[in-house]
Design a protein around this nucleic acid. Structure first.
Length: 506
DNA sequence: AAAAAAC
């Protein structure tokens, strides 16, 4: 098997890779690095979680190793759709370029121009940017792109969704024809295809499917929710969310909760905090410093629940998320795939639970058509009809969740996660809650046997684990899977290999 | 109808 040492990378880069603890490149890295080092254009079709970022940072650092940056003329450029993603790429550069003298600047919105200007003036080897802020700098005459030798476009399909393609085309036009282009997208939509035909020259195409999307390692479930009274809807929905989180018990080490609206992100986060959960909101209206702080806290484990808009649906590298909760059914079906793709990364187990209100039914149909299977129905722990009491009041005793303790009841899970996060804060279980025996935490969600249709809804919530299928072989948890991407290219559900357009077409 | 990204 190919090792990083076989890849002709700069010894300084190899040293940093070894120090970071890596030996074996992922398939996208093994495929993209050699042609990139030869100076060829690369078209990488890969999702996040495949090691995509290093597949362009490592050869870039090697190629830029010689030469020096001139004032206002960066030698390379990486474009990302969101600020967080750009910041992540910048971190990656810091890690792998630490033994070199290369300089970099991160140009993203929401922060002052001053520091960014100062760095550009000094001259940088690598510029990492979101399109808006980059063009802003350019228009102020602070930046020349005629010295760009390598240009990277990351998450191109998301750029497309966000309407950045005209900006990207414009930026392409500002760089020299002779540049090398490394282009990454999760899917090849027709518009993406057009861009690559226009701006890439005889690219080496590397296509890698991720094993872990909605395949066997993400357990999915959906809970139908109908409020007892209209004016209680939002409070009851939040109460249901808490019950669903609690039902997962110790298995839920950290989670992302997605809401469709920024306002709901704020409300849900605030409500969870009130009930003693360690939750923080993240969405585009929060200021950048808070977004950064929250994300850092979530990565480090200081924050265990991230309540997020779709700003966090794609691209964000949050290792080892055990659960995704969809507070709403996403209105764009493809967002479902991206959202639940935040869990079950790198061959690990993941759980994705979604709440579906009557008005979300249509969106649910769209999602199920897209993934070409029925998402197993879970029992509503609050009951299907009117509750006798307002759930918010019923559980009003706030639970103390600040203390950190090691997992007690789940030694295996604790072992597995020991490397990543030996401790975690957990809300205390309220006495008012139903006995665990009736609500076994690991069995609340049924395994998806795709593309086999889900079993009858009634049967599965209480089904003992031993009777569930699909637990053999690869399906088992890996103890050492922390950073390694495993099972690549195998057992990929057919739909994930198709473009979203093809999926919609059925 | 919403979210993201520029001021």
């Amino acid at each position: 098997m190919t090792q990083f040492n076989d890849l002709n990378l700069d010894p300084k880069v190899l040293k940093a890779i070894a120090e970071a603890g890596y030996e074996t490149p992922t398939p996208i890295q093994a495929g993209a690095i050699p042609p990139a080092l030869e100076g060829r254009d690369v078209l990488g079709i890969a999702q996040t979680g495949t090691g995509k970022t290093a597949s362009f940072t490592l050869p870039m650092i090697t190629l830029l190793g010689r030469g020096r940056a001139r004032a206002r003329m960066p030698r390379s450029l990486v474009l990302c759709p969101t600020r967080e993603l750009a910041a992540q790429v910048a971190e990656n550069f810091d890690t792998y370029a630490k033994h070199t003298k290369l300089t970099k600047a991160l140009l993203i919105g929401g922060v002052s121009f001053k520091e960014q200007d100062a760095l550009i003036d000094k001259g940088v080897d690598v510029l990492i940017a979101t399109p808006g802020r980059l063009l802003d700098h350019f228009e102020r005459g602070k930046l020349l792109l005629t010295g760009v030798q390598i240009m990277v476009v990351d998450e191109a399909d998301r750029m497309l969704d966000m309407g950045f393609i005209p900006d990207i085309e414009r930026i392409f036009g500002l760089t020299p024809f002779t540049r090398q282009t490394l282009f990454f997208s999760a899917t090849m939509a027709p518009e993406i295809e057009r861009i690559t035909n226009t701006f890439l020259s005889n690219p080496e195409k590397i296509e890698v499917a991720r094993a872990a999307t909605t395949g066997e390692n993400i357990k999915q479930g959906v809970v139908k929710f109908a409020p007892s009274r209209k004016d209680r809807e939002s409070a009851e929905k939040r109460a249901l969310l808490r019950r669903l989180i609690d039902a997962e018990g110790e298995a839920c080490t950290n989670a992302i909760i997605f809401c469709n609206r920024k306002m709901d992100v704020d409300i849900v986060a605030k409500s969870l905090k009130k009930y003693g959960y360690n939750a923080e909101p993240i969405h585009g209206d929060l200021d950048q410093s808070q977004r950064t702080r929250t994300l850092e806290g979530f990565r480090s484990g200081d924050v265990t629940i991230l309540v997020a808009s779709d700003v966090a649906a794609r691209g964000l590298d949050v290792p080892s998320v055990s659960h995704v909760f969809n507070f709403d059914v996403p209105s764009h079906a493809e967002d479902y795939v991206h959202r639940i793709g935040r869990t079950g990364r790198a061959g690990r187990k993941g759980t994705a639970v979604m709440i579906c209100s009557p008005r979300d039914e249509k969106n649910l149909e769209d999602v199920e058509r897209l993934v070409q299977s029925q998402i197993p129905r879970l029992d509503n722990p609050l009951g299907t009809t009117a509750a006798d009491e307002t759930p918010d009041e019923a559980e009003e005793r706030p639970r103390r969740g600040r203390s950190r303790r090691v997992e007690r009841n789940a030694p295996k899970a604790a072992e597995r996660d020991a490397k990543a996060k030996p401790e975690q804060s957990k809300p205390e279980q309220s006495k008012a809650e139903q006995p665990k025996a009736e609500q076994p935490k690991a069995e609340t969600v049924t395994e998806v046997q795709q593309p086999r249709p889900a079993p009858a809804p009634e049967a599965k919530a209480e089904q003992p684990r031993a009777q569930q299928r699909g637990r053999s072989g690869r399906d088992r948890r890996r103890d050492d899977a922390d950073e390694q991407v495993v099972g690549m290219g195998e057992d990929v559900p057919a739909f994930i290999l198709k473009s979203f357009k093809e999926r919609r077409a059925g």
